[in-house]
Every structure is written in C-alpha cells, then in structure tokens.
C-alpha cells in the first residue's frame, strides 16, 4: 500500500522506516504530482513554519485538503499536528486547517523541557506507549467530531477526527509500531 510521507523538512525518514516495518510502501512527497495513488498521508515532525512556507510555494495545500475531503487518512505528528489544526494559539501561520482543534505550539516548553514519558492509550491496549515529546505542542480546544485518544498531565496529546489522526509526540522515534498500525487501519 502506497503511503505518502511529506518530505519537505523534518523526520520523514523515520516515518518511512516505521511504515515499511508495518508492511506499507512509503513514498516521499515534495511535489503535488507525487501524491497520486497515495492511500494515506503522514505529515512528520519538523518545523511547521518551514513546512507551511514550502507547502505554499510548491502548491501542496490544496491537493492535501482535497485528499482529506475525499476521505484519505492523514496522520500528523508534532509539527504535523500543528499543520492539521484549524488554529494555533497566538500565532498567525499557514495551516492545512483540517481538524477542529486549537494547538499551543511549544506548549510543553523549549528543548530543555523536552521529555519522554509512558502514555496510556486505551485504543492501543493496556501496554503504555513511550511518548517522545520534543518542543511539543498540545491541544487547548476541541470542536465537533474530535475524539480524545490520550491525555498527559491534563494536556490532550492524541486525537482523532474521522480519518485524521494527530499526535503531540513522536512514535516514529521509537520501535513501537502500534500507532502507525492503528492509523493504517483507517485505509478503507
């Protein structure tokens, strides 16, 4: 199964590795024509301002919004979550705006506050998932249709809205494939 991984900037290779380990066939996306035939899309961690600029410059915003409208599953981690959000607290930046969430960028603080912690994620079973949070955002407000899948210290860090999935943390930096597998099940 062909799964696009947005490769403008950030940790796209790690997502490709996780997806391959799940049996999918990842392809790096830098231009709109490369999205053709992708059954799902991953937006990796990195810097959301960088991605927003390059998505605008290389005409990727509209095709990705159209994919989402057509029901293609999209998974965003960290900066990818920011890109999926409708709004970022206190900042005006280019977003895909596909999910009814408001996020706070660098919500957990700067790099010296970056951390790892075990997360309870009921949809993945009892075994906790090691969450790697790097200058991570969290969700401050939810709209219609958004389901909370994980919370850490009262902060919402994993949500689903239909076939869209967004995480504050980086499952691609661990060997735990459960969240990627959960996402790939969204593909009809």
């Amino acid at each position: 199964m062909r799964v696009g991984v947005l490769a403008l900037q950030g940790a796209f290779l790690e997502h490709c590795r996780s997806l391959r380990a799940c049996g999918a066939d990842p392809v790096e996306i830098r231009k709109p024509e490369q999205l053709e035939g992708c059954r799902a899309l991953v937006i990796p961690g990195g810097e959301s301002t960088t991605m927003g600029r390059l998505m605008t410059a290389y005409d990727l915003l509209t095709p990705i919004r159209e994919m989402a409208a057509a029901g293609t599953p999209i998974f965003g981690t960290c900066a990818g979550m920011v890109m999926l959000a409708r709004q970022v607290e206190g900042l005006d930046q280019t977003l895909l705006g596909l999910m009814n969430i408001t996020v706070k960028r660098n919500g957990f603080g700067r790099q010296v506050d970056s951390f790892e912690a075990d997360l309870q994620i009921p949809v993945l079973g009892k075994e906790p998932l090691r969450g790697v949070f790097i200058r991570a955002p969290y969700i401050t407000a939810l709209g219609e249709g958004v389901e909370v899948l994980a919370v850490y210290h009262d902060k919402i860090v994993l949500v689903r809205q239909g076939k869209l999935l967004a995480a504050s943390f980086h499952p691609e930096l661990t060997d735990d494939l459960r969240l990627h597998k959960y996402f790939l099940e969204f593909v009809a």
Binding site: L8, G10, A11, E14, G46, Q111, H170
Partner: peptide
Amino acid sequence: GLAEMLKGG
C-alpha cells in the same frame, strides 16, 4: 530527536 526534526532544513 531535536536534531532529527531539523533534518532537511
């Protein structure tokens, strides 16, 4: 991990 996030940038 932060260095991984800077890649391609």
